[in-house]
Design a protein around this nucleic acid. Structure first.
Length: 480
RNA sequence: CGGGGUGUAGCGCAGCUGGUAGCGCGCUUCGUUCGGGACGAAGAGGUCGUGAGUUCGAGUCUCGCCACCCCGACCA
């Protein structure tokens, strides 16, 4: 019942929250989870916000099959090499062995590009901007609820363009959408950057990502946007005729975020009392807890449902818990565990004084507010403040835990507790050595101008490991 | 795939040198309560993961198998 405190075992704390706040449960299938209503509600909020942002940037939704013929998977060499070991493969159907095995999608580039080939003939068919909301399966060796499960929910955007410049623009546009979503909705500050050659997506020319810091100082890759070049177009022979009559291969991008974001949300903001949800992603933004004493029941419940009506009419995600089976204290603890941003207490004493008590989940602060027509506006202002405070708090934490290091010793100490900003000679060998010795990886080569300036990343220097000349500092961290 | 751990009531666990299963929470009913996880009374709920073996007798001992969890390596 009690949560393991963060300080004693961070990873157990995380699991305790997921299970006790009823976000997810283990299933009877290894590595797969059941997303419970509390967790799924967060996903629905995320979907709604992201989907609107995708539509605003010109994308439409479609759906492609779960099954991918083995031969499709094999068409792009890097792709199959990267994904084959972690794929689930269907060998039988209708009681008979299949002539060709079917892969359960680990990602949909191949099935989509085999289809795009049929849809694209001319530059007039471009760009093609499609997103799909789906599930994917990767047979991971080790799984953790939300952060890495064998089956996960996600969205994957797959776009086709006439020129490389256009594709590149799309890649950057979408990573920017992810940044905005993470910061504005999840209240999660992220570093936007490019992956190194060894960390990029299997089959991509370049991979851009957003990296977030969790409360244990580790990094979580929270979204990726890939510049696929002409790799998949060539693999699937997808050409178009340009304005001047030339046959050219199509340029591609793909980008995605998954239910892992829910894990990020939990690890970034929550505390030893439970989940802390940013108001924009909370279905239940405020819970009304009536305090019933003696014969005040009718009076208090009437007032409570009046408040419920008033707040609801003003667009607050309000919920009235008038269940008389639990005491107020039980409810306080329960909704704190579940991360409800605001709690409103109303009892006979309050009604007499024409006020109510409102408690903030992020700070624990309790306020007395007058019961009047201005209440909904005050509540909305508070929700907004909580949203901003969570972001500010997370950003301050990241700044505090991000340090530039000059020596390898400092480096080793720094990646134990946070992000290390360090010079790197640009070679995969150095990157691999550092990973082997410290378990820290290059999270990204930042492209975010404000972050670059904050840590003066363009200054020249010497590689933290090899001592060779380096033109830019990068971000190192241990990662989930 | 290595290392560690756990399988006993819905959940968390106890069960000693073998003698036929118990505690807390939760659940049901009734009553009293209600401003930080209330209290009383009465109930319901278990092929002890699984298969062998030892024994008069196995939750307990022996061997095998299975499953899951945690920590690593690999990955969104």
């Amino acid at each position: 019942m009690k949560l393991t405190p963060r300080s004693s075992d961070y990873s157990q704390w995380y699991l305790d929250i997921v299970l006790q706040a009823k976000l997810a449960d283990y299933s009877d299938v290894r590595g797969c989870m059941v997303i419970r209503p509390n967790g799924y509600a967060i996903w629905e909020k995320m979907q709604a916000a992201l989907d609107a942002m995708f539509k605003e940037t010109g994308h439409v939704n479609a759906y492609f099959p779960l099954f991918i013929p083995e031969s499709f998977m094999q068409k792009e060499a890097d792709h199959i090499e990267g994904f084959a070991p972690e794929c689930a493969v269907v060998t039988h159907g209708g009681g008979e062995e299949l002539a060709e095995k079917l892969y359960v999608r680990p990602t949909s580039e191949t099935i989509i590009w085999s289809t795009y080939k049929k849809w694209i003939q001319s530059y007039r068919d471009l760009p093609l901007l499609i997103n799909q909301w789906a599930n994917a399966v990767r047979w991971e060796l080790r799984t953790r609820l939300f952060l890495r499960t064998a089956e996960f929910l996600w969205q994957e955007g797959h776009t086709a363009h006439a020129t490389e410049a256009e594709a590149k623009e799309e890649v950057l546009r979408m990573i920017e959408v992810y940044r905005r979503f993470a910061e504005d909705y999840m209240a999660l500050p992220v570093i936007v950057g490019r992956k190194t050659e060894s960390e990029k997506f299997a089959g991509a020319k370049e991979t851009y990502c957003i990296e977030a810091m969790m409360q244990d100082g580790k990094a979580l890759q929270s979204g990726t946007s890939h510049h696929l070049g002409q790799n998949f177009a060539k693999a699937f022979d997808c050409k178009f005729q340009s304005k001047d009559g030339q046959l050219e291969y199509v340029w591609a991008t793909s980008w995605g975020v998954s239910t892992r974001l829910i894990g990020a949300l939990i690890m970034a903001h929550s505390d030893d009392k439970g989940l802390v949800l940013p108001p924009k992603l909370a279905t239940r933004q405020l819970v009304i807890v009536p305090i019933i004493k003696g014969d005040s029941k009718t009076l208090v419940l009437e007032k409570a449902s009046e408040l419920h009506k008033q707040l609801k009419a003003n667009g607050v995600g309000v919920f009235l818990d008038d269940n008389d089976q639990q005491t107020p204290g039980w409810k306080f603890a329960e909704y704190e565990l579940q991360g409800v941003p605001l709690r409103l207490e109303i009892g006979a004493k309050d009604i007499e004084k024409h006020q109510c008590v409102v408690a903030r989940r992020d700070t624990g602060e309790k306020l007395s507010l007058p019961l009047d027509a201005a209440l909904p506006e005050t509540i909305k202002r508070l929700l907004n403040e909580i949203q901003n405070n969570l972001f500010a708090r997370a950003l301050a934490y990241r700044n505090e835990k991000t340090k530039e290091v000059k020596t390898y010793d400092e480096f080793k100490a720094q990646v134990e507790t946070g992000f290390a900003i360090a010079h790197w000679d640009g070679t995969a060998e150095t990157e691999a050595k550092i990973k082997e010795e410290t378990k820290a990886t290059i999270r990204c080569i930042p492209t975010d101008e404000s972050f670059i300036q904050q840590y003066d990343l363009r200054a020249e220097g010497k590689c933290i490991y090899s001592g060779k000349p380096s033109k830019m500092k990068v971000v190192f961290a241990k990662a989930y």
